[in-house]
Amino acid sequence: MGTDFKIKICGIKDLSTLELCRDLGVDFVGLNFSPKSPRGINRNVAEEILSIRHLPGFPKLVFLFFENSTEEILSLTKELNPDLIQLIRGDRFLTNEIWESFTNQNRLLPAIRIQSPVVSDEELEPKSSLVILDSFQKGLGGGSGHVFPWEFVTNVKRPYLLAGGITPNNVQLALNTLKPYGIDVASGVETDGKKDSNKIKELVQNVRNI
Score class of each variant (00 low, 15 high):
L130F: 11
H54L: 08
I132N: 05
L80V: 04
E19I: 08
S135R: 00
F102E: 14
P35F: 03
E47K: 06
F63M: 02
V45Y: 00
I88E: 09
F33E: 02
G141A: 08
F33S: 02
N81S: 14
E97K: 06
N68W: 04
T95H: 04
L130Q: 13
P82L: 05
T17A: 03
D134V: 06
Q137G: 05
G57N: 05
P56K: 13
L18F: 00
G40V: 05
I85D: 14
P117G: 09
L94S: 13
R22H: 01
W99E: 13
L50R: 00
P126I: 15
S75Q: 15
P126G: 11
D27S: 15
E48R: 02
R92E: 15
I73N: 02
G57I: 07
T17N: 03
F33M: 02
K60H: 13
L55R: 10
F102W: 14
D91R: 01
D121K: 03
N42H: 04
V62R: 02
D91F: 04
I98N: 02
I41N: 01
K78I: 11
G40I: 07
E125P: 01
L140S: 12
F136I: 07
E79N: 12
L31N: 01
N42T: 08
G57V: 04
L74K: 12
L94K: 01
L64C: 05
P117F: 14
H54N: 13
N104S: 11
E47F: 06
S120C: 10
K138Y: 10
D23I: 07
I52G: 00
E71S: 11
L20D: 02
I52H: 00
L109M: 08
G141Q: 04
I132G: 04
R53E: 05
L61P: 02
L18Y: 01
L108D: 10
F63K: 00
K127R: 15
T70A: 12
I52R: 00
L61W: 03
S120P: 03
P126V: 15
F93I: 10
T77Q: 11
D134T: 05
V118G: 08
N106I: 08
D23W: 02
E97R: 07
R39T: 02
N81C: 12
Q86Y: 06
K60M: 10
S75M: 10
E19W: 01
T103V: 13
L87T: 09
L133D: 10
N44L: 14
E19K: 12
G139W: 03
G141N: 07
G25N: 04
L133M: 04
I132W: 06
S34C: 05
F93N: 15
K127N: 14
T103M: 14
R113W: 05
H54T: 07
I41F: 01
N32P: 01
E67D: 13
S16L: 11
R92M: 10
Q86I: 08
R53S: 07
I112P: 00
L61Y: 05
E48D: 15
E19N: 06
S101H: 12
